[in-house]
Design a protein around this nucleic acid. Structure first.
Lengths: 179, 179
DNA sequence: AGAGACATGTAAGTTGTTACATGATTTG
DNA sequence: CAAATCATGTAACAACTTACATGTCTCT
C-alpha cells in the first residue's frame, strides 16, 4: 500500500475553515499559520487542487467578489468534507502521531469528542515513549564514564526525556481543563 | 543549488564513532539509536555507501574478524572525517536547526567548542522563536471569543509556546552546566 | 511606464518509499 | 530440513524541490 497522502487533507482542512480560497491563499496559510507543522510549495499545491477538483472533493467557487480574472477560488464539497472528517477520525498510532498537532488545528469546537480522543491517545502514546526513553537512559548512562564517552548522545536523550515530560504534562492539563 | 544531503553525513558520524560497520549495522542504528531524529531504509543506505566509497569518504575494512562472506564492513577515511567535521561546523540557521540534535549526537567530548557553539546558537534561535510565538498568540487570541472560534489552533499554539519555553530553559541549564 | 508583488502553471531532477529478489546463516 | 533472520541489492513509483515561464495587477 502506498503511503497515505497528507497534503489533500490539509487543503481540505483549510478550505473547511475558510471558504473561497485561492491557491495563493492556501500557500500563504502554509507559510504563516501551519508552517510549523506542514509545508508545501505552490508547485505542489496547484496540481493538487486540480486533482482534488476531478476527485470531487472541492469545486470552483461561483461567487466572484473580486474581478481579478486569473484568480481561481475553491470551496469544499460535501464529499470533501466527509473525507476530511474520516481523516480526522483515523486512529492515531505511534507511526502517524506527528499528524496529531496538524489534526488539532482543524478542530474548532472546544467540546469535540474527536479532540478529546486525540488528546487521550496522545497521553497514552507519549507516556509509553517517555518510559521507554527513561529505560534507555538507565541502560546507556547509568555510569558517569558512559556519559563522558558519549556526551552528545547523553544530552539529546536527556533533552528528549524532558520534552516528553513536558508534553505529557501539558496533555493532561489540557484534558483536565476541557471537562 | 541542490538541497544539501544529510544521509552521508549521518553515516560518517556513525562510522566515526564505531569503525568496522556493515550496511546492516548502520540500518540498525537508524532504527534504534538515532531513529528519533533521522531514518533511512536499507535501499537508501546501500547505494549511498557505494557512492561514498567512490567519493573516498569511506573504505572497505580490511580486518575480517567474522568469516561471513557476504558482509561488507566499512571504515571512515581521513577525507571522510574532514567532511564530517566541516558539516558539524556549518553555521546553524533557523532553516537547518532541525539538524542540531542530530549533530550533537556525533559530538562525544563534553568540552568541545563546537558543542557549546551549537547550544549558544540554539538559545538565540529558540528565544526568538518563542517571542514570535507569544506575539502571535497575543494577535490571534487576546479575546476569549477568538479562542472558542479556533480552539484547536489555540491549543497547538499554546503547546508550541510551552515547548519552546521548556526548550530554551533546558538549553540555558545545559550551557551553564558545561562551564 | 517601470518595479515589484500577485497568481498560476510546468519541467527537470533528487530523494525516499515500497516492493521485488537472491543467497547465506542461524534456529527449532 | 524448514522457517526465520541476516545481508545485500535493484526496480518502480510517489513526493517534493528548484528552476523556468507567463501574464496580471498595483503602486509610485
Amino acid at each position: 500500500m502506498p503511503k497515505p497522502r497528507i497534503l489533500p487533507n490539509v487543503i481540505l482542512g483549510l478550505l473547511d475553515n475558510h471558504p473561497n480560497m485561492s491557491g495563493r491563499d492556501i500557500e500563504n496559510e502554509f507559510q504563516t499559520e501551519i508552517g510549523e507543522f506542514w509545508q508545501a510549495s505552490h508547485s505542489q499545491i496547484y496540481p493538487e487542487l486540480k486533482r482534488m477538483l476531478t476527485d470531487g472533493w472541492i469545486e470552483i467557487a461561483t461567487e466572484r467578489v473580486d474581478e481579478d480574472a486569473k484568480v481561481i477560488r475553491y470551496d469544499i464539497t460535501i464529499a470533501g468534507h466527509d473525507h476530511l472528517l474520516a481523516w480526522l477520525h483515523e486512529p492515531i498510532t505511534a507511526e502517524n502521531d506527528a499528524l496529531s498537532s496538524l489534526k488539532l488545528y482543524f478542530i474548532h469546537d472546544r467540546h469535540s469528542p474527536t479532540l478529546a480522543k486525540i488528546l487521550r491517545t496522545q497521553v497514552e502514546l507519549h507516556t509509553k515513549k517517555l518510559s521507554h526513553l527513561r529505560q534507555r537512559q538507565q541502560q546507556l548512562f547509568s555510569k558517569d564514564a558512559q556519559i563522558d564517552r558519549q556526551y552528545g548522545h547523553f544530552l539529546i536523550l536527556t533533552r528528549a526525556i524532558e520534552r516528553e515530560e513536558n508534553n505529557v504534562d501539558w496533555l493532561q492539563r489540557t484534558l483536565a481543563g476541557s471537562k
